[in-house]
Design a protein around this nucleic acid. Structure first.
Lengths: 394, 394
DNA sequence: TGTGAGTTGGTTGTTTGAACAAACTAATCT
DNA sequence: AGATTAGTTTGTTCAAACAACCAACTCACA
């Protein structure tokens, strides 16, 4: 209410943002096309565009093709590729993933750094080195614009509140990097950024307003896009579906959580125990499954049933347009997907929510973080922005 | 995006709505106060108010008190109490609840009609009679403005898609009443309107953006307010938490739903079976509980544990600012609430979502429907409207 | 108790400025 | 050359802002 457009100046600012969003989402685009899309007079668009250009956000890309019945060629406009860049990180169990993106969300560089067994304080200098290295080779006009971190754990008010396999309580990342660079620094749960990725980077989802991304890694969490915006909850704990307990009338002993049955960790531990093995990894499970190992096959059948149950419950809770699965295990064994779908179909005979796999989950979290921090840089948190409109993957 | 304010006319319309919202939410209010609240010039507010008055939406209520340091008395403005009325219905199991409200959401009349055992086609003439009776005694300028129905079941696109105890597939209520009166007719799930009630009628919730109302009647459902707006889901099935199944690794036989364990029906049936009784009602259960009956007490302990588990799961899924319980059984036995809270506290030792009871659940659904249909009448679906600002309960 | 200074609510007439419209230039096609 | 399209320039429009005013009140003080 109080943030609503109410006077001419606010109207002007909003229209500038609308023009920028058009350039962002449909680059390369001409002024006349923006004018038609926004139902704004072409002279108005020209004036608004001039403001954006003075601020350096946009640039001309050259001439486009004229219409086939004659007429002047349009001048193609685009987001300034040399405006600056964001740095986006993902703390994986074994690797730190590092990505550099420009203002449009295009990937400028990507790198994995081995951090297995290191503490956060030991990782910090590695991050600093990456930032310095990138900064030294940069030729953009504004340089570093913002930093994002995808966290495998919960985040509240930009602080890590819980992180299962890397102690993050010793360092305040937001504090450290805002002090150092005076740019927006953003921490966000990994399932949440993954959901933002689907909203902002996946053109197929442009018209969808409700999406749930179920992330099955060492734990289980969901990222929620509701009414086109990320639902974090008051403590940043919305979508912590791995903590759900069974409601079945049995209350003997400690209630067990969903995560205890069907996280990737739970499955690996289960197979390990039955095989009296040790230190197994996802790759081992994949290998055993492909070698037709019966213990593994039956464990994964249980996994598949449980995932179907989770999907059924998520569908009943949120009734989204689509559910994404972000699971390296299922990504490695795509034959599990139809099994999940068939168990789900048994549970929900009539109305079902479509299920899709998130491809290349590491990129997803980095790009989701990129989208969030870029929006903050632009002050366009709520606008409809279509990142990666012409992303060139390296 | 495309609905954003972009030209002077749209700006003007939005500002008219802002002024109306101020009158609506803070009536009685003076022009100067609106001007200060909206940061609009007082002459602008005067002009916008004049438009609203010409359309009949508002009226002057007389003079207020002057400031204690002198100065002219303000003229107090309010929503026109004689503009028209909405009719709001709730199909209960035993009664049809009927409420007439004015444009501000004030209760003009309330009535229960016995409909136990009747089919929808038999109930229809009773509804028509109520509408005619009210219409005959009305002296407002625009008469009937809209109709809402709270449905114990699921609703999609204003059609009932599932209704457990009253067959509603034979009659299209929206069709029938729009044909008859040419006013907006709205069908909505009972848990959803209950959630809207908490958002729009409960001043204590004004600052809250995420609320879940758990409705425990013959089934279990949740109404979701997320980011201040009702989340229905793509098929209108969001919040159907009663259908959730347990994820516990056991997949022998048909999975049982939450509803099977802890709806009011399930509890009554359970007690009935153990007592070899028949046709028990909620009132019987309440009586037995108060008479210290052990079977009832132990059944309700199970109920309380299950409700705590449901709350825990809802908190993990949505992480709302508050959870409301809309349950006639708990309303009748308020001593159950602390028990629920204590079981919940055992499950979630650190972060907990506050739990509150919805008072007078029948009013809640009617008023929630009133809020929804009134918003549609005004074309102000997304504005922040504070209904019942000065509701006089009859 | 009466008067005038100070204060506040609301109206009237004028100014402002962002979007708009029309007329223009530029560049292309057939 | 005539038709068509892209973009610019120049002047118009109209809702909000502003300034000056009127209306009506309080309070202090004679």
């Amino acid at each position: 209410m109080s943030s609503a457009v109410r006077n001419r100046m606010q109207l002007h600012q909003q229209n500038i943002q609308s023009v920028f969003a058009e350039v962002f989402n449909h680059q390369p685009i001409s002024r006349i096309e923006i004018s038609r899309n926004l139902a704004l007079n072409k002279s108005t668009v020209s004036a608004l565009y001039r403001d954006l250009k003075d601020q350096g956000y946009v640039e001309e890309l050259g001439e486009g093709d004229a219409s086939n019945v004659g007429g002047r060629k349009p001048v193609l406009l685009a987001v300034n590729r040399k405006y600056g860049y964001t740095m986006n990180f993902d703390f994986g169990y074994r690797h730190l993933h590092v990505m550099q993106n420009n203002l449009s969300g295009d990937v400028l560089s990507y790198k994995q750094v081995n951090v297995k067994g290191l503490t956060l304080k030991q990782i910090l200098p590695l991050i600093d080195a990456e930032l310095e290295n990138i900064s030294a080779n940069d030729h953009s006009s504004h340089g570093l614009l913002g930093i994002s971190f995808a966290i495998h754990g919960t985040v509240d008010h930009n602080k890590v509140t819980y992180s299962p396999f890397l102690d993050m309580s010793q360092v305040d990342l937001e504090d450290y990097y805002t002090q150092k660079f005076q740019v927006p620094v953003l921490l966000e749960n990994e399932a949440n950024v993954s959901a933002v990725y689907e909203r902002d980077f996946n053109k197929a989802n442009e018209q969808l307003s409700n999406m749930v991304t179920i992330s099955i890694h060492r734990g289980i969490g969901a990222g929620l896009i509701i009414h086109q915006s990320l639902h974090r909850g008051i403590h940043g704990e919305a979508g912590e579906i791995g903590r759900s307990v069974s409601i079945d009338g049995n209350w003997d002993g400690e209630p067990r959580k969903v995560e205890d049955y069907c996280s990737e960790d739970a499955i690996i531990t289960q197979i390990q125990d039955q095989k009296h093995a040790d230190n197994m990894t996802r790759e081992d499970v994949v290998r055993l499954f492909k070698a037709d190992d019966q213990v593994t096959k039956s464990a994964l059948t249980g996994f598949v049933r449980n995932v179907a149950g989770i999907i059924y419950n998520v569908a009943n809770n949120f009734d989204p347009d689509v559910i994404f699965l972000n699971s390296p295990l299922i990504e490695a064994l795509p034959e599990l997907k139809p099994q999940i779908e068939s168990f789900y179909a048994q549970m929900a005979p009539s109305i079902r929510v479509p299920i899709k796999l998130t491809k290349n989950s590491h990129y997803a979290t980095l790009l989701g973080g990129c989208a969030l921090v870029t929006r903050e840089v632009l002050g366009m948190e709520d606008a409809k922005l279509n990142f990666g409109a012409q992303t060139v993957v390296l």
